[in-house]
Nucleic acid binder design. Structure first.
Length: 269
DNA sequence: TCTCCTTTGAAGTGC
DNA sequence: GCACTTCAAAGGAGA
């Protein structure tokens, strides 16, 4: 099974090799707002890749009126949203994600909201559902740190690529019979680079709206709040994986790819 | 059970 | 202002 997974991913990557060489991170694309053509270095699609590539239809203008959709006063049915990859966003990628994305499911988690339903971005730090208070287990011995750890965590809003991954993951899994997320994410990363500016713009716009909404819902929240809540691998290991190289004698990573300037279309205001 | 892997982008930190 | 770090999602693999 694992072999199949590896072979599948390998075949796909061989047909759509990294722009900057095997094992390397693709070179950052020029800022999209500066490029009128697909970024330099983006390889032409092979027939195989074309098979996997499923360009989005020309995006319809984002319907801002979606914001006005009445908020549910009862527990929202999250099934559609958590089965997002099986349908909702895939079918209505240009309008629905605003309302169906986990962190955008309004009507819950808003302080003082009558529904008092936890917002989907709010999860226990453990990542598991909150359980009723257990008197038998809770003692004074429970450390303050542990209590802190069990406080609900407000997640970061998803960026454009994360929104894209969420929408396309199921499709890649179905097409490639892959299940391993690391391999799937590699494929999605290459697909992302192969998207047109317009297609990417759609996701940048969704991400921008999500950030705005997140700020409105949680005015005092900072990404720093979640720092240290995940145990991270060693820095050196992470750097080697993200730069494709080891630290030099100066302790730096000379080939660190610069982050392309974000593309912030002003089409919807 | 927990962490890593793997991707991009946003945001935080440190100098 | 730049370079670097962390965290968002996902689920299999391995310790």
């Amino acid at each position: 099974m694992y072999k199949e997974t590896v072979y599948s991913a390998f075949n796909l990557l061989m047909h759509y090799p990294p722009a900057s060489g095997a094992g390397q991170h693709p070179q950052p694309q020029p800022p999209l707002h500066k490029a009128s053509q697909p970024a330099h270095g983006v390889p032409q699609l092979s027939p195989l890749y074309e098979h996997f590539s499923s360009p989005h239809p020309t995006p319809a203008p984002v319907d801002i009126s979606q914001k006005q959709v009445p908020r549910p006063l009862q527990t929202p049915d999250l099934s559609g949203f958590y089965s997002l990859t099986s349908g909702s966003m895939g079918q209505l990628p240009h309008t629905v994600s605003w309302f169906t994305h986990p962190s955008l499911m309004l009507g819950s988690g808003v302080p003082g909201h009558p529904a008092a339903i936890p917002h989907p971005t709010i999860v226990p730090a453990s990542g598991k559902e909150l359980q009723p208070y257990d008197r038998n287990l809770k003692t004074q011995a429970e450390s303050k740190a542990e209590k802190e750890a069990k406080k609900p965590t407000i997640k970061k809003p998803l960026n454009a690529f994360m929104l894209y991954m969420k929408e396309m993951r199921a499709k890649v899994i179905a097409e490639c019979t892959l299940k391993e997320s690391a391999a799937i994410n590699q494929i999605l990363g290459r697909r992302w680079h192969a998207l047109s500016r317009e297609e990417q713009a759609k996701y940048y716009e969704l991400a921008r709206k999500e950030r705005q909404l997140h700020m409105q819902l949680y005015p005092g929240w900072s990404a720093r709040d979640n720092y240290g809540k995940k145990k991270r691998r060693s820095r050196e290991k992470h750097q080697e994986s993200t730069t494709g190289g080891k630290r030099n004698a100066f302790g730096t990573y000379p080939e660190k790819a610069a982050t392309p300037a974000p593309f912030l279309p002003m089409t919807v205001l």
